[in-house]
Every structure is written in C-alpha cells, then in structure tokens.
C-alpha cells in the first residue's frame, strides 16, 4: 500500500521543501510524516485513559504546529518541524533527540 502511495506521490510535484539539519534542504517526498510532536506519550504502565488521550485526541490546529517528520530516504533522523498548516511555511526544523540537537548546535 505504502509503495503504491509513494508511486502516486512520485508522479506529482513535490510540494514542500524541508531543511534537514543533517542533509540540507530536500523535497518532502524524501520524508515521511510522523505525527503531532507535542504529544508526551505516557509511561508504558500508565492507565488506559492516559494512553487514550495520547493516542486518539488531537488538536486540529490552524496555523503553526509542531510535528514529527522522518527523513526516511535520507539520514533517517526523526525531526521536529514547526510548520503552518495553512501555508506550509516552516519556521524551524531540529532533531527530535536532544543529544542529536546538541550535536547539530555544535556543528553550527
């Protein structure tokens, strides 16, 4: 299924460009969308209710939202992208993992 979707995507124009902190600016077709980056997933032994809240309830944000993207066909880094759901404008891209964030900061 994913393969077919990827095929259909490859037939259309790539719409968003994402600046991967490691690889540079790339077409969004290299990335896979993850989800809401603001979610704090509960501990594994947390209650069903907490997990329900984390998994199923989402804000439908009109404007900037923090989301995760996976640089699937690149460095494989999971990134936190601050993107406008209206204009696709991207304010910032940084690694999700705090240690990788630090390394990227040092590199600058």
């Amino acid at each position: 299924m994913n393969v077919v979707l990827a095929q259909i995507q490859s037939c259309t124009v790539n719409m968003i460009r994402i600046k991967c902190p490691y690889c540079g600016e790339r077409d969004h077709s290299e990335f896979a969308y993850g989800g809401d980056a603001s979610i704090k997933y509960p501990n594994l032994d947390a209650s069903k209710e907490e997990w329900t809240e984390a998994i199923f309830f989402r804000e439908n944000i009109r404007g900037f939202q923090k989301e995760t993207w996976h640089h699937l066909n690149g460095c494989r880094m999971w990134l936190e992208v601050d993107r406008s759901t209206i204009t696709h404008e991207i304010k910032s891209v940084k690694p999700c993992h705090p240690d990788l964030q630090k390394i990227m900061e040092l590199k600058k």
């Binding site: 896979a32 997933y41 995760t68 996976h70 880094m77 999971w78 999700c96 993992h97 240690d99």
Partner: peptide
Amino acid sequence: KVMSWLEELLQTRWT
C-alpha cells in the same frame, strides 16, 4: 515500517 517505528521510539520517546 518496523525499522521506522524503532527509530521513532528511540529518537522521540525513549531518548
């Protein structure tokens, strides 16, 4: 999918 999932867990949840 499993590979991406493991990477997601390690990079975003269980850092």
